[in-house]
Nucleic acid binder design. Sequence first.
DNA 1: CGATCTATCTATAACTC
DNA 2: TGAGTTATAGATAGATC
Lengths: 169, 169
Amino acid sequence: MNMDNQRKKSVGHKKIEIKKIDKASNRQVTFSKRRQGLFKKASELCVLCDAHVAMVVFSPSDKLFCFGQPNIDTILNSYINETTEFEDSKTSSYEEYNRRYEEALKMLESEKKKLADVQNLNKSDWWNDSIDDMSIEELEQFMESIKELKTNLNEPMLCRTMEFLDLDE
Amino acid sequence: MNMDNQRKKSVGHKKIEIKKIDKASNRQVTFSKRRQGLFKKASELCVLCDAHVAMVVFSPSDKLFCFGQPNIDTILNSYINETTEFEDSKTSSYEEYNRRYEEALKMLESEKKKLADVQNLNKSDWWNDSIDDMSIEELEQFMESIKELKTNLNEPMLCRTMEFLDLDE
DNA sequence: CGATCTATCTATAACTC
DNA sequence: TGAGTTATAGATAGATC
């Protein structure tokens, strides 16, 4: 059965016991490979099943890896909201403060982002941005904008707009 | 090679394409199985490599599943500390968390206020403004905007834009 | 390190009960 | 539905470069 062991380039992978890998170098290699695999599985789960996954991984050497589909912070936010809803008064104060702190931070981040967005929008440079950078939602909103704008346009303006859209190139 | 197909109890698993599973029941089944598999892999990674993993999963029907080794909140907290600029990530006292929570709340309030101000300042989103209020220069600039925008629009978007401008009323 | 290889092990798609 | 079965697809341990 293994008479030709001598010509095998590799023994293939052996069954391993699930316990901490002793040798640090091996542990690091295995971590890299399996972390990759884990993220791949997570992304497949998202695509196949329309699920949302957020994952935070600290390596043996405490390096940070994240995965988030569609967006890690959004999902963590949902998680925090969902869990704080239930366990309002029965969690320990420590955990409770942790949660509320996290929540506040997340909201802070989100508010900052909104602020940045608004300020950006008002830089009056929006028309120079490539639409390639727009998300679906942004595009939808953009279409809505165009539509509403139209109702505000007077006749001459509309004509000129049409011209521009139609003519060059 | 497959002469005894008729006695196979199962065809085994077929290669599948990674795209959203159409049939909802299949999607749910696949979700359950793969979610289990994902959590198992995560736990193996933790044990084998001494890693820390936190995972939050929302099913297609938005049911929540969590995984955390050693503890999901601890890890998420580390993640938040790591990704935010706060430097003292190893404080752990109750008072410290409380202080930071209050601090975050204050910042949150301030950010919200700024946001409100900015939005107020620009109150009307531009597309809701009547063009009656625009100066000649603004109108010229607006036309230039439309023109430049057009060069950035892809075909489908342009069509939809034209539709909107053309259709109603 | 990190990429590649390959024999094996493991996860799982389709099926049955 | 949920749990079990089977054969195949996919992940990966150990080696090599």
